[in-house]
Simulated scan of single mutants.
Amino acid sequence: MTPAQLDEACLALPAATRVVQWGGSDVYKVGGKIFAIAGLAGGLMFKVTDLAYEVMTQSGMAKPAPYLARAKWVSFDDLAALDAGEVSDWLRTAHGLVAAKLTRKQRAELAL
């Protein structure tokens, strides 16, 4: 997956925004809450379900994300090595998990 494909996939999600933070990382948010981070040493981090976290980290597919593992985030070192379709599905899930935690009022304001 290229950075442009990642940007397109994230920003295609409802009410998703991108900001540049932490020394040039692309931080993708919904309702002000982060669902994915790209650019930290060329990698990608995002939120996953509890089951996906266990499968991805125990199989060696992904690593627990630094500082975010307790919240069930995974990390990939090389964005270019990832399949664009698969990553798009993971990002859609990450977006949904984070959006579900927003208040009812926030979801209504964002038309989610």
Rank of each mutant, 00 (worst) to 15 (best):
D83S: 13
T49G: 03
A80M: 11
L11A: 13
A41F: 11
L13C: 04
T2P: 04
K47D: 01
A69V: 05
G31R: 02
D77F: 07
I34S: 02
T49E: 06
Y67W: 10
D50R: 09
A84Q: 03
L68H: 07
P14C: 12
V74N: 07
L40S: 12
G60F: 05
K101D: 05
K29H: 04
S25Q: 15
G60S: 01
L40A: 13
M1A: 04
T57M: 12
G32T: 05
L112Y: 04
L6Y: 13
F76L: 05
F46K: 06
L11M: 09
L68N: 10
A108W: 02
R18P: 09
K101R: 12
D26W: 11
L68K: 13
A94H: 06
W73H: 09
V30P: 00
L102N: 00
H95P: 08
L40R: 14
Q21V: 12
Q21S: 12
L51N: 15
E86F: 14
L97N: 05
A16Q: 06
A99N: 04
Q21C: 11
P64C: 10
K29D: 07
G39N: 02
K33L: 00
R107K: 00
A81S: 06
A81F: 01
P64L: 10
Q21N: 13
E8G: 12
R70A: 14
A9N: 08
M1V: 07
V30W: 02
S75P: 14
A100L: 05
D83L: 08
G32V: 09
T49Q: 07
I34P: 02
A38H: 07
M56D: 01
V48Q: 01
V19S: 14
D26I: 10
A36M: 00
V98I: 07
E8Q: 12
A38I: 06
